[in-house]
């Protein structure tokens, strides 16, 4: 394999991995802190993509459409937590799975009612619609680099918020002993609602920024959800650090799988998961 070609695949794999991290981090955070298995997490990814697509019919800037889509996604996430998920904290995981699976069906049906069954696309914004030439024949698209940069910046930002701020300390404390957090005068319902909304926003943002290089269509949230569960399981359920490494691993495995063994492409991801779980049955950072 040509070294430049290899480099491009590495960049693609990292870009996909960073994007997966953004979705998976919310999933693992919500499980690790609130103990909730949220099957509807992929639906927020879909919501972000469709909202952006829909808003682009009224505004002509991708950035503006995304900026408008995020508070809507946050509000939807917060309401779902406050009205539905909150009831289930002290119930077992089966109840949570049933509720959030039901939410997937509702999200998918709402998507079909509002936007139909067609597959849509979004154009890469003009300012980022060019490529960096690497050799005479190979080049790398700037938009993909921008995605990687945004995701990496958000990963660092998330790390800082969780590790360095009081909000982050409350979140971690809530994962450890939520009754004690309330006994210190902190509104845990509001805190967990905020975490859920944050997870929804990260997933929606991923769906929105990925839209120009993939397609927007029915079921897109389900595909992402499954891959994100693989990422979360590889990383160790509840671990952000694990989700980060797991996402990069899966991003690279998926990209190289498609290049090296196209016939087995969809298998490569699960092969990596099986290999990791053989060595570390509870994931990398359980």
């Amino acid at each position: 394999m040509d070294i430049w070609f290899f480099l491009i695949q590495v960049l693609n794999g990292l870009q996909y991995g960073l994007l997966l991290f953004l979705v998976a981090s919310g999933l693992t955070l919500i499980f690790g802190i609130m103990g909730i298995i949220n099957l509807a997490h992929g639906s927020f990814y879909m919501l972000g993509a469709y909202l952006t697509f829909w808003l682009l019919q009224s505004v002509d800037s991708l950035l503006l459409a995304i900026v408008l889509a995020l508070p809507i996604s946050a509000a939807v996430g917060y309401l779902i937590e406050a009205l539905l998920v909150r009831v289930l904290y002290r119930r077992d995981h089966l109840d949570q799975v049933l509720l959030t699976y039901g939410l997937i069906l509702i999200f998918n049906e709402a998507q079909r009612m509002l936007w139909g069954g067609d597959v849509h696309g979004i154009k890469v914004p003009a300012a980022l619609d060019w490529s960096i030439p690497l050799t005479d024949t190979l080049s790398y698209p700037v938009y993909r680099m921008a995605i990687s940069a945004v995701c990496a910046a958000l990963a660092v930002g998330m790390y800082l918020v969780i590790q360095r701020t009081r909000f982050g300390m409350w979140i971690r404390a809530g994962a450890s002993n939520r009754d004690m957090v309330a006994a210190l005068g902190i509104n845990v319902n509001l805190l967990f609602g905020a975490v859920f909304a944050l997870g929804a926003v990260l997933a929606a943002l991923s769906g929105a920024i990925a839209a120009p290089i993939s397609s927007i269509g029915p079921g897109m949230g389900d595909t992402v959800l499954i891959i994100c569960f693989v990422v979360v399981v590889i990383g160790g359920v509840g671990s952000i650090k694990g989700a980060f490494l797991g996402a990069l691993l899966i991003g690279l495995a998926d990209t190289f799988g498609k290049v090296l063994a196209p016939d087995f492409a969809s298998f490569s991801v699960y092969a990596v998961m099986a290999a990791v779980l053989l060595v570390k049955p509870r994931g990398l950072f359980a």
């Binding site: 300390m169 971690r172 404390a173 994962a175 450890s176 002993n177 009754d179 004690m180 309330a182 006994a183 210190l184 005068g185 902190i186 509104n187 845990v188 319902n189």
Partner: peptide, 23 residues
């Protein structure tokens, strides 16, 4: 709610101390 009562000026040190294992 507990947090609202506490906010009115109470600090509570429970039996068992209520440490956070990750802080």
């Amino acid at each position: 709610d507990t947090h609202a009562i506490i906010r009115r000026g109470i600090a509570y040190v429970p039996e068992g101390r209520g440490m956070f294992h990750n802080l």
